[in-house]
């Protein structure tokens, strides 16, 4: 294939087809359908925001994209491969919803540990640790144990660990939750900076204003179903607020909402 054509046929970052997940019944709890028939394609360099009420299936989607859970039905390809292949995850950075990190480690030890999990050379891990701690303004607390960090500090070190491998795809689960307005502003700037670098960003959020400012495209999950998808620019052109689309979609969960 000529080089020109090769550039046109770009690899899809993420492709989900008919993706469903049902958690089996447990003692005292019935079986729960967390995701139903999700069809989704994410292009390289795109910033996609997945919205939805609590329990809509947003976190489950990310777990499936990372191979942490297995779909009941349907398929997922990340960079053309199964997410259960550990090698695929060399190209992914992930920030979980609540920063569950090893509390006994200091900030810099934690980043070194995460760098080690990507088998990066030691000098590169050191350089990236310094660079990222500076980027998230955590140099002064680098030798403090994570158990002494505030929620905002954990979130900062969390995004730093998600970027330690210079990933092509960044998955962020509720990255703004628990942050004060200053923290949210800084985080938004950081995500916009990643976007300018051409990273593909997929994030779950409740905060519509952030999503509207950052994302190219949004999807709204209701009771495990992708009830609406829209390009943010199209919404703006139509003079529609994201909040209006969100509320209409959430209030009419069974209806198949129009794709803007």
């Amino acid at each position: 294939m000529p080089a020109g054509e090769q550039a046109i046929v770009s690899e899809l970052v993420l492709e989900a087809s008919g993706l469903s997940k049902t958690y089996a019944a447990q003692i005292g709890q019935p079986a729960r359908q967390a995701l139903v028939g999700l069809d989704l394609v994410i292009q390289p360099g795109e910033t996609f925001g997945l919205l939805g009420p609590n329990g809509a299936g947003k976190t489950t989607s990310q777990k499936l994209f990372l191979g942490l859970a297995r779909p009941t039905r349907g398929t997922i390809r990340v960079f053309g491969q199964s997410p259960e292949n550990p090698d695929v995850r060399n190209r992914i950075g992930y920030l979980p919803e609540n920063p569950y990190f090893y509390q006994h480690l200091t900030g810099e030890e934690f980043l070194r540990f995460c760098g080690g999990l990507f088998n990066l050379p030691r000098h590169l891990v050191e350089a990236r640790t310094d660079q990222l701690l500076a980027q998230v303004r955590m140099q002064e607390a680098r030798k403090v144990q994570l158990k002494k960090y505030s929620k905002g500090m954990l979130q900062r070190v969390g995004i730093a660990q998600a970027l330690i491998n210079d990933p092509e795809l960044v998955l962020l689960d509720e990255p703004m939750s628990g942050l004060d307005p200053v923290g949210r502003h800084e985080f938004r700037e950081l995500i916009l900076d990643l976007k300018r670098q051409g990273k593909t960003i997929f994030f779950n959020s409740h905060i519509l204003s952030d999503v509207s400012e950052i994302c190219d495209r949004v999807g709204i999950l209701v009771e495990g179903r992708l009830a609406a998808q829209a390009a943010v620019d199209d919404l703006k052109r139509q003079g529609r607020e994201l909040e209006t689309l969100f509320m209409e979609t959430v209030r009419a969960p069974k209806a198949v909402a129009a794709t803007a």
């Binding site: 777990k63 990372l66 191979g67 942490l68 550990p86 090698d87 695929v88 995850r89 060399n90 992914i92 992930y94 979980p96 609540n98 569950y100 990190f101 090893y102 995460c114 999990l117 990507f118 088998n119 660990q161 491998n165 998955l171």
Partner: peptide
């Protein structure tokens, strides 16, 4: 329980 395994297994660790 603490979900630290999610963080590790989200990296290329088998």
């Amino acid at each position: 329980e603490r979900r630290t395994s999610f963080l590790v297994l989200s990296k290329p660790v088998s």
